[in-house]
Design a protein around this nucleic acid. Structure first.
Lengths: 66, 66
DNA sequence: CAGAAATGTTAAGCAAACTTGACATTCATG
DNA sequence: CATGAATGTCAAGTTTGCTTAACATTTCTG
């Protein structure tokens, strides 16, 4: 699963910590998602889409193996 | 997080086992998601949307606490 | 260049998502 | 009514998502 979080966050000039606060998760979680270490849960994916004002499908792209 | 999986599956007249096979997960996972025991992972949510030919946002609705 | 802010890295632990297995109950349909 | 298919339920185990914490490195700004 690829995602666009880092670029979207950069556009808004939010720090990882600030994005975490907006979403109610830790900075480590942001790092892990941005770096592709793991995928967010579905509720967190909805929150991410909400803060960036896009659809989930615009923020995340399933990769072949998924 | 509310979802529409049970109703969509019923429309297609698929058994829980068959849906599980189409998604590559166990029947228990289908039961758990349909009954609201837990939310699917993001990759599984994408697959669910794909097999039902809808958008994730049409299949899942975040509840206030999420 | 100094200090602060942001990011990177590692690690240990808890909770949620998913698995397999076993068995009981309900729902067709012949 | 009998047999099989579908669904329900319980349990124990693994993996993934998320947490806190500590510290190192890079980037920004005065």
């Amino acid at each position: 699963m690829r995602n666009d979080v880092k670029a979207r966050r950069a556009e808004r000039r939010w720090s990882q910590a600030e994005l975490g606060e907006r979403l109610g998760v830790s900075r480590q979680t942001i790092i892990a998602i941005e770096s592709g270490k793991y995928d967010p849960s579905l509720p967190l994916a909805f929150k991410l889409a909400a803060v960036f004002e896009v659809r989930i499908e615009d923020l995340f792209t399933p990769t072949p193996t998924e």
